[in-house]
């Protein structure tokens, strides 16, 4: 088996005294798409933040392409080719749209620059019309496009999308799903967290379901039976 792109074992994470993740294993291969599912407060965002170094796990290990990054600074992990579209979007409101994109620009690990500023603007024509606007002046959908575009500017090998369609009007959400599908098809590995389970299952090679800080299901999407969905996701 080839070396995983990202592999975490036995992650235990805390917020202060509250024990949130109870020994979670996580693995994603190159080009793979993983649907990370679970009801509110089950620990999806906490897992992502633990993988990316924003929250230091108290036990367990995280490896990127075999390199141990459990104690590495978040910016170092990011530079290994991991990009993040966080819950709540995280655009910089005090930077213009153009600056939000430019500040993130970086060649990929292999030196390739598949995603250039021009290509991002081609992909998101609505951003091209608003280059001089402050990030905070955009609509929700535009902000989401900016966050995704900004993540792509780093030419990542893995894109983690946490609730990218949350709070968007259905038509805009559909646009975002089309974009996510395009990114997946371009060969970038993706981790998708979303409340639209149907869309997630449609895109994912593998699904992982979390309940109270534990992975209760981790297998190919086809095996995600109605029972599991009913029991753990409550739909």
């Amino acid at each position: 088996m080839s070396e995983p792109l990202l592999e975490a074992r036995g992650i235990h994470s805390y917020y202060g005294a509250s024990h949130i993740l109870h020994g979670v294993d996580f693995r994603i291969d190159r080009g793979e798409t993983i649907g990370l599912m679970g009801r509110n407060g089950m620990g999806k965002t906490t897992l992502i933040r633990s993988l990316l170094g924003h929250l230091r796990p108290r036990a367990g290990s995280v490896k990127v392409r075999g390199l141990d990054v459990t104690q590495a600074a978040p910016y170092r992990i990011a530079r290994l080719g991991l990009a993040y579209v966080p819950e709540g979007r995280g655009i910089f409101p005090n930077l213009t749209v153009r600056e939000n994109l430019i500040m993130a620009a970086r060649a990929g690990l292999d030196g390739r620059c598949d995603w250039t500023y021009e290509r991002i603007l081609d992909t998101f024509p609505r951003l091209a019309e608003r280059l001089a606007n402050g990030g905070g002046e955009l609509s929700g959908g535009e902000q989401q496009m900016l966050t995704i575009g900004r993540a792509l500017m780093t030419n990542p090998q893995l894109l983690i999308l946490d609730e990218a369609t949350e709070g968007l009007a259905p038509l805009i959400a559909r646009d975002i799903w089309t974009i996510i599908r395009g990114i997946r098809d371009s060969g970038i590995a993706t981790v998708i967290v979303d409340k639209n389970y149907g869309a997630v299952i449609g895109l994912a090679d593998r699904c992982m379901v979390m309940v109270k800080g534990r992975a209760v299901f981790d297998d190919v999407a086809e095996k995600l039976s109605g029972d599991v969905v009913q029991k753990y996701l409550g739909v």
Binding site: H54, Y75, F92, M103, A105
Partner: peptide, 25 residues
């Protein structure tokens, strides 16, 4: 400059700037 953009980005959202590879320290 990009440094200036990173400075401003870091002052508005440090975690996000780091997630984009900015060595904020």
């Amino acid at each position: 400059t990009r440094l200036g953009m990173m400075i401003r980005a870091g002052s508005s959202n440090r975690e996000m700037a780091e997630a984009l590879g900015v060595n904020i320290k």
